[in-house]
Simulated assay, not measured.
Amino acid sequence: MSEMWTAALAELLALERKIFRKLNETIDITRELAEAVDREDQVSVQMLLSNRQMPLLELQELNAAVDLKRCDLSGEDEESFDWLIVGGGEPETPEEKEVADQLALNRRVLTQLAELDQRVNEKLCREKSLYRKR
């Protein structure tokens, strides 16, 4: 394992941990939003939609930073990065395992967020929901 790959793994782990925190923040706001929608509290709905925008934008920035990490790598390190991101098998080192575990956790939280967002969107927008097939 190259020194560059070792450093990239540490940076990737730090980014993925930040992503995890932002995902959790977004889920919390989305849960509050779901409760406000159930109560038909339009003021809270508007406020929470506005509050949810910032962590979503920060998630975009963090994901872009992950993509930029790949640009710093070449050859075998780049292949290892791609393999790790897509969950291509068993990690070879404890560092890779730690990153792979964090990535898997983030995917699970993202799935929960998407499901919650779908329920809120369908309640809020009904037949105009983004999730409804046209």
Rank of each mutant, 00 (worst) to 15 (best):
S50F: 03
L105G: 11
L113Y: 12
L23R: 07
R126Y: 09
K69V: 11
L62A: 02
Q112F: 15
E32C: 10
I85F: 09
D38E: 10
G89F: 03
R21F: 00
M54F: 00
S2I: 12
A114Y: 10
Q42F: 08
A34M: 07
E11D: 14
D77T: 05
E76I: 04
V120R: 02
L15H: 07
R108Y: 15
Y131S: 05
T6R: 03
Y131P: 03
E78V: 06
E96K: 00
A14E: 15
D41V: 07
K18P: 03
Q42W: 10
D28Q: 07
K69T: 08
S129Q: 11
K18L: 13
A65M: 08
L15F: 15
V45Q: 07
N63S: 13
F81L: 02
K133M: 07
D77I: 02
L49V: 14
A64C: 02
N51F: 08
V66N: 01
E61V: 10
L49Y: 02
E61N: 09
E79N: 11
L49A: 09
E98S: 03
L68D: 06
A10R: 15
M1S: 15
V43L: 01
E58P: 06
G88L: 03
Q112E: 14
I29C: 07
G89C: 03
L130T: 08
L59K: 03
G75E: 14
T93N: 00
L15K: 04
E98Y: 04
M4V: 15
S50Y: 08
L84P: 00
N51L: 11
L124Y: 01
Q118N: 06
Q46N: 09
M47S: 01
R132I: 12
L113P: 06
R21H: 10
Y131T: 04
Q102S: 05
L59Q: 04
Q112I: 15
L33K: 01
L33D: 05
S129F: 09
V86P: 01
I27F: 07
E95C: 09
R52Y: 02
E90M: 02
